[in-house]
């Protein structure tokens, strides 16, 4: 029995231009201690998917249209706000891309860091402060005893992200959702933060849902990867399989478009076109207009293709056009 079992999650936004199906029926599992990646371009729905789980979607205009998210004996999507508050920040926490906008600039780090302990664990202030100092030490902040009373602006970007990680993990959550935690950081700081998430995860046995657009980062941290496009998963596989035998055209295009993978002097490969406008509804295969058609190859699915399990734990959208040209299984 997985720790978190998401089935057929659908979230849409009712806008003036129509109903945008940002998340359109996705299912995934998170096992205890596992790192699950969700990769996709901006606007593919990866953040909306995770915010839906914590009921952080502004409603209206957003609406969770259906699905279940079994977390122990709870269904996260059905919880009342009062019960959700007992889960959010305690059993599931979240770190965001930009540590500057997610820390309150008016409050000392200490105030922000002990808040979850006061609320969720009912500790006294002095007990909580001791825990907070220990947590800051664990994320590698030098001299935590005096630094804890600083304000966010007194920390550098990387240090702030460490504070965010300390804050997210201080209640020993079962799941940590990391939404592009390193995108705003320097490469060297990114390395440190990725390593830190990994060590803390190993120490505490937390499962991590890692949202990113960077396939290279995914290959380093994730155990299992879901590739998201236009509100749906187009391919799901263990990380080794995904990189060794990518099947869907979108996954292959994403891999090719990483600048670091290409030779100098060649024109960089880019995926032609733009992701579809979800407000109009997508009739067939969402990737068809951008897929570099194989002349005379099979055509794309005319209705939205279903995910099928090609081999054990390797799922892919069953669109003949997108699967054409992939290296055969095994």
């Amino acid at each position: 029995m997985p720790l978190l079992e998401v089935r057929d999650l659908r979230t849409s936004f009712h806008t003036r231009d129509g109903i945008v199906r940002a998340v359109d029926g996705i299912s995934f599992d998170v096992e205890a201690g596992q790192t699950v990646g969700i990769v996709g371009e901006s606007g593919s729905g990866k953040s909306v998917c995770c915010y839906s789980l914590l009921q952080l979607i502004p409603q209206p205009p957003g609406r969770i249209e259906g699905g279940t998210a079994k977390f122990g004996d709870l269904d996260l999507l059905q919880l009342s706000e009062a019960r959700m508050r007992k889960v959010r920040g305690k059993r599931i926490s979240l770190i965001f891309q930009d540590p500057m906008t997610s820390l309150n600039p008016y409050l000392r780090i200490s105030t922000q860091l002990i808040e979850p302990l006061l609320i969720h664990e009912g500790l006294s202030k002095s007990e909580a402060l001791a825990r907070a100092i220990a947590e800051l030490e664990a994320v590698g902040i030098p001299d935590p005893k005096s630094r804890i009373h600083s304000y966010p602006h007194e920390f550098s970007g990387g240090m702030r992200q460490r504070v965010m990680i300390a804050m997210a993990l201080i209640t020993r959550p079962e799941i940590l959702i990391a939404d592009e935690p390193t995108t705003a950081l320097d490469v060297t700081i990114q390395r440190q933060v990725l390593d830190l998430i990994k060590t803390r995860q190993d120490d505490l046995g937390t499962a991590v849902i890692f949202i990113t657009h960077d396939l290279a980062v995914v290959s380093e941290v994730c155990d299992y990867v879901n590739v998201m496009y236009a509100g749906r998963f187009v391919e799901r596989a263990p990380v080794e399989t995904l990189f060794a035998r990518p099947r869907h055209a979108y996954t292959r295009a994403l891999q090719r478009s990483i600048p670091a993978m290409q030779k100098k002097g060649e024109i960089l490969y880019t995926i032609p076109g733009l992701p579809p406008n979800l407000a109009n509804g997508v009739p067939g295969c969402a990737f068809a207009p951008r897929c570099e058609a194989h002349e005379g190859g099979p055509s794309h699915a005319a209705t939205r293709p279903a995910l099928v399990e090609l081999e054990s734990t390797h799922w892919v959208q069953d669109c003949p056009g997108c699967l054409a040209g992939a290296v055969a299984t095994n």
Partner: peptide
């Protein structure tokens, strides 16, 4: 510090 794809890509 550069993140690297750890798995050899066999994509055509």
């Amino acid at each position: 510090a550069i993140p690297k794809i750890r798995y050899p890509a066999t994509a055509p």
